[in-house]
């Protein structure tokens, strides 16, 4: 029953899966972790990213990762516009906590239903020559449909981390929820900083979506499975810490993979909420939280 190669493969599969989860969670690490905006529609944008990859791949044969990169600026603009609406309707009048949550819930439904009306509820997939290939080192398998998303996600995480920690705008993004007035006194416009950061968060969803559809077929409502996961990762990582988020994503991926290998796949969706509950009980600041 228990064997070393099964364990090794479960761990490797978990690391690869977790790496991909980081791509889904990184937008929330910015928008929820740094800006305190509860954007539960984020996974829905990831699904839009996946469908964008599907459409351009099936029509023109574009590589899905390339589509993700090309779509990111368009998603950025969509994010900026969405934040404008959110700001004018809720944040400006101080109603963001509950009404804002309802707003993003509505956005999620509109996206999901629009995709169902346009493309139905069938699973869609992309073609790329690396998708079926597997690299093997000893008895451990590295399927490229997992390794490519892992690698792209790791690069995305490193890029966002450097951006937030090394640039003026990055520091301002970290500062804006901590003290809005003080940031204004530094000569930065808090609304424009938040709008930029929100756009950046949504832009990452374009890339995460293209990775999602490389891993496996996607239908419009699979985004829901990622709401709990992505929030659990951001909280476990320590609200806004990018390295913490990546490590938390790996932990969640490994635990899910082990549970799925040794206890059965039907248990794996429970893992995220288990991790979330344990984090909140034992270490509410998360692994790398700056309290």
């Amino acid at each position: 029953m228990f064997s070393a190669d099964l364990l090794a493969n479960a761990v490797v599969a978990g690391v690869l899966l977790g790496g991909f989860y980081a791509a889904v969670a990184i937008g929330l690490a910015i928008v929820f972790g740094q800006l305190d905006i509860v954007n539960i529609a984020h996974p829905a944008f990831v699904i839009v990213g996946a469908f964008t990859a599907y459409i351009l791949n099936s029509r023109f044969g574009f590589d899905p990762v390339l589509v993700g990169l090309l779509a990111a600026p368009v998603f950025f603009i969509a994010g900026v516009l969405l934040y404008r609406i959110y700001f004018i309707a809720f944040e400006r009048t101080g109603q963001e906590s509950l009404s804002g949550l309802a707003f993003f819930f509505g956005v999620m439904f509109i996206i999901e239903v629009s995709l169902i009306m346009a493309y139905g509820v069938d699973y869609r997939l992309v073609q790329a020559d690396y998708i079926g290939r597997v690299w093997s080192i000893g008895f451990v398998d590295f399927p490229l449909r997992m390794l490519v998303p892992f690698s792209v996600s790791a690069l995305l995480t490193a890029g966002i981390y450097l951006y937030l920690s090394r640039t003026f705008l990055g520091s301002a993004i970290q500062a804006v929820a901590q003290d809005r007035l003080a940031l204004q006194l530094m000569g930065a416009d808090p609304v424009r900083i938040k709008q930029w950061a929100f756009g950046l968060g949504i832009a990452t969803a374009a890339i995460a979506g293209s990775l999602l559809i490389i891993i496996g077929p996607v239908e419009p409502s699979v985004g829901r499975q990622y709401i709990g996961r992505a929030f659990a990762i951001v909280v476990l990582g320590g609200m806004g810490s990018i390295p913490g988020m990546f490590i938390a994503a790996l932990i969640l991926g490994i635990v899910e993979s082990m549970v799925s290998t040794f206890a059965g796949p039907s248990w794996s969706p429970a893992v995220a909420f288990g991790v979330l509950a344990l984090t909140l009980a034992l270490r509410p600041a998360g692994l790398f939280g700056r309290t």
Partner: peptide
């Protein structure tokens, strides 16, 4: 701020979860 007016606000209003150096560098945002 760009004209050369700066304010030290009441209660200091630092960014508590940023480092000392990150706080200083944000002072030069313009």
């Amino acid at each position: 701020v760009s004209l050369g007016v700066a304010m030290v606000p009441e209660g200091r209003r630092l960014f508590p979860r940023l480092t000392v150096e990150e706080n200083l560098l944000l002072g030069a945002f313009r």
